[in-house]
Design a protein around this nucleic acid. Structure first.
Lengths: 217, 217, 217, 217
DNA sequence: CATGAATGAGATTTCATTCAT
DNA sequence: TATGAATGAAATCTCATTCAT
């Protein structure tokens, strides 16, 4: 049915179909036939472009991720202040997953728990993106905006965990409907903490008034 | 080979085997034969106790979770202060997953991304445990210890996300070796936030001295 | 359909079916379904007993060959004279292939040209049988019955080649109908050679008649 | 890549590639893509010249065989004596296979066991070559050089069998390294037989001396 | 209660072959 | 003439599940 086409186009078409199908049915439950049907090609055609079902899965990130990271780096340049940059990062990821729900599902529900994927070239790109969190944290610590007593890897993990938890939840239960709405409260929580900050109006100061000797000291 | 045994004992034996095998190979990759071998029973015997491979998977939480939650509720009673209770919760989960790495793997890598599991009785117990986070948050807000401007569900999600991120990482890459070490820094971060608190020593106060009229008031 | 059965019985049943099917269609052209149908079991059952189609093929010799060799060794003991023993060997093989035409086809048309089979345990047994040719040749040379100027391996190869050629021909074209009829002419040819022996009746002798001195010695 | 070419040249190029590939991997295991790659053309091009993979296989003998037979007939003319001619034949085949090991492999390991090939035009040429054996045997019988009591077809089969056995062995195990070395011992064996010829020096003759009547007879 | 044995139902993957360009 | 691209048609092999004993 499907006539000749440029190779990259065809690959993209199959990858898009795979993303959709895997997102909907999961990797093991989805069949190559499902993907082929969705892509409008034959089963065999898929194997002309991808050596195996697993390779097909692992190729889904690829471009998307690499380009996302580039864009992100670009955008961060115009934001001043570590706190603002952190908000920018959180926004980037939540907005991205909001706009690519199938990719979100594949990423959160399939790839993230795949041991083999972790050794993949594609995963390296993912990690590169995560490196930006570290740089922003460092910057904040340096400038005195952020606390210096926290391990930066732990901080990053906590932030990513919070983001991923929401994205996963959305992939599984369609809630929350809008991830971007979470950017501010999440940033707020992570930057400001759960504890109520001490209200200066409620502070008690001990003010000591000392007579100043008018003569020499 | 395996002689008659009390029904619950045999079930537990099979579940333990399933936990181990699923943790190691993943659900789809593991076979009933693998589980049977690990349990020291025949394939057919497994079907005497569980209707399907999926039911076997979904039964793994069961007791564990229910008992964990009970213990948790009990322990919390002896902790005063919402912040301390939160630390207690975080400790509970990290310690639990640290001690049950196979369960951690099954939970993080398999169950958590399974849509069908979310409709399960077993999952209700998991959620009940998570309810405690809400109660502690509420308590903290009530007592004024916690900020009142944050959605409690979001807060809980962030905390769980941070915890799960670490547990997942450990399940996949054996790092960090000791989850319990993370209790304090993680609690610190989540309660105190990433931003450096304003240092009172560096605060500027405008002190106004007014003469007090000694006559009328 | 097929009920439980003793394991060796079932294996033999499948092997017999495989022999028939492979003989008829060749290895690549025959399918596991063909064999299963012939054996009256399901495709999957075959894989309960044999790990792969190739293993099924390589297991076809096995017993047959081992027992054949034993019988052969036994029989040879009662034959005197290397020439007679050689005739016995040739008879053994031709009769055996005559009686097991399917095995003959599998052996000549499939196994004999399979490089992997040569590294098989089963092939070792085949070779053991061939070792008897060497022993008989040696015996003949020792006793002076056979020529000593020929390499025994070459002789064996020639004899086996002649036998196999006939067996192959029969497997392919059903000719000759009776291999056993070839025993005598083949033995004759191989032992006596193609060249016409010098006919004593046609020999020329120079007869010298010398007068015998009647006196001394 | 491959530009236009004379049709026969292109065919020969593909056939040579097929010979190499089939020799190395076997017919079923080799793919058209393998052959195409080896030939430096595309898969589709092969189908411009050959209707199917099988036809490609069956066309491999073709020229080679026909020319071989012609050469053989020519050479035999200059040899005198059936025994010498037989040696010449054996030499011809062994030398030919020695020089064309890929063709030897295809011929011995693939074509020889293919029922369909036997009905092929190409096979007729092969058989024609074999016809020379018959003629030489007949000549030898006629001239009294060879025994008359052996079926000529059987004799031919034995000789071919011996040759093919060696060629097959070489194709499979690279032994013997030099087939031509076998010409003399093999001819010797086939012509002279395995049995030790009676040594005239050891013969016993009964010599009868009769008085000759000097008168009439 | 336990299991040996059997199988139905697929899934992935391969490849010879076709055809429009 | 040459081929890139596509695919129909299978084939091997796997495995969850059943059931008679």
């Amino acid at each position: 049915m499907a006539g000749p086409k440029k190779i990259e186009e065809r690959k993209a078409q199959i990858l898009a179909a795979a993303e959709t199908v895997f997102a909907r049915k999961g990797f093991s439950e989805a069949t190559i036939s499902d993907v082929a049907r969705q892509a409008g090609v034959s089963d065999a055609t898929i194997y002309e472009y991808f050596a195996s079902k697993e390779e097909l899965l692992f190729t889904i990130p690829g471009e998307t991720t690499r380009m996302g990271t580039e864009l992100l780096e670009f955008n961060l340049r115009y934001i001043r202040g570590a706190g603002n940059k952190m908000r920018g990062l959180i926004y980037h990821y939540l907005a991205f997953y909001q706009e690519h729900p199938d990719y979100a599902a594949v990423s959160m529900l399939i790839l993230k728990q795949n041991r083999k994927f972790l050794e993949t070239e594609a995963y390296r790109h993912v990690r590169e993106g995560y490196g930006l969190f570290l740089r922003v944290i460092e910057e904040g610590v340096q400038s005195g905006e952020f606390r210096a007593d926290l391990d930066k890897y732990l901080v990053r993990a906590a932030i990513l965990g919070a983001i991923e938890h929401q994205v996963t939840r959305r992939a599984l239960m369609d809630k929350p409907a809008n991830l971007v709405d979470l950017v501010d409260p999440l940033t707020d929580l992570l930057l400001g903490g759960l504890k109520r900050p001490v209200n200066p109006a409620a502070m008690n100061f001990k003010i000591t008034v000392e007579p100043i000797s008018s003569s020499d000291d």
